[in-house]
Simulated assay, not measured.
Amino acid sequence: MPTEKIDLDFGQVTIHENILIAKLNEGVLFDVENNKKLLALGKQFFRDKNYGYISHRVNSYAVDPMVYFESANTQNLKAIAVVSENEMTRRNADQVERKFYKGSNSFEVFQTLEEAVQWIKTKI
């Protein structure tokens, strides 16, 4: 059950007990500046508590893989999941984006939001 929904200029974020779920707008370039806004929300809502991030990709948009360097260095961000029904989007996240995520924390790709939520819960 979401605790809060936040509209940003590049999409909508839903804050759950220990999960931040983002649905970004069609055509957005998700870059380092946008990622800093998401990480700031994580810091604001979760403080020092461990949490996970789910990129729920219902729209088509581009991701600057540089975002993963800063995310990998966020101590209490323990897991990142990408969710998409689109096979090509999942394959790109798995084969390309994953290579840029160099943190000790986990990165996985899923077809459904429910699978991602269950996986995140095992990581935090």
Rank of each mutant, 00 (worst) to 15 (best):
L39K: 04
A40W: 04
F10W: 14
K5V: 12
E108C: 00
I120D: 05
Y101I: 00
N50Y: 11
K49W: 07
T112F: 06
I15N: 10
N105I: 01
L29H: 10
F69C: 08
N76L: 02
V58T: 14
I120A: 03
M1T: 11
R98N: 09
K78D: 09
S55V: 08
W119L: 04
F110M: 07
I19P: 02
K49H: 15
I19M: 03
Q12E: 15
F107L: 10
A62L: 13
I19C: 02
N18V: 03
E108N: 10
K23M: 07
N18S: 14
A22G: 13
H16V: 03
F46L: 04
T3H: 15
D94E: 11
N86V: 08
E115I: 08
A72S: 15
Y51N: 04
M66F: 02
I19K: 01
D31N: 15
E33K: 06
G42P: 03
L24Y: 09
E26L: 05
R47T: 15
D94W: 00
Q118T: 15
R57C: 08
S71W: 00
Y61E: 06
D48F: 06
K78F: 09
G52F: 05
Y68F: 12
E114G: 00
F45G: 06
I19Q: 05
N73Q: 14
Q75N: 12
A116K: 01
F46I: 09
E97F: 00
I54A: 01
T14P: 03
Q95R: 11
S60G: 07
G52M: 04
A62N: 14
L113D: 05
V32D: 15
Q118L: 11
K102T: 14
L38S: 03
Y61N: 11
M66R: 14
Q95L: 13
Q118S: 13
F30H: 12
S71C: 03
I15S: 03
T89S: 05
A116W: 03
W119F: 08
D31K: 09
R90E: 01
A72L: 01
V83H: 04
N50T: 12
F100K: 01
E26T: 09
A40P: 00
K23L: 05
T74M: 09
I120Y: 05
L113S: 03
F107Q: 06
F45K: 14
E26Y: 08
A93T: 00
L38F: 02
F107V: 03
L20M: 13
A72V: 05
I124R: 05
K23C: 12
F110W: 09
R57N: 08
D31E: 07
K23V: 13
K37H: 11
E17H: 13
R98T: 01
D31V: 00
N59K: 10
M66K: 12
N105V: 04
L20R: 04
E17T: 09
V83Q: 07
Y51A: 01
E97S: 00
N73K: 15
Q12L: 12
F46S: 07
G42H: 02
V28R: 12
F10M: 10
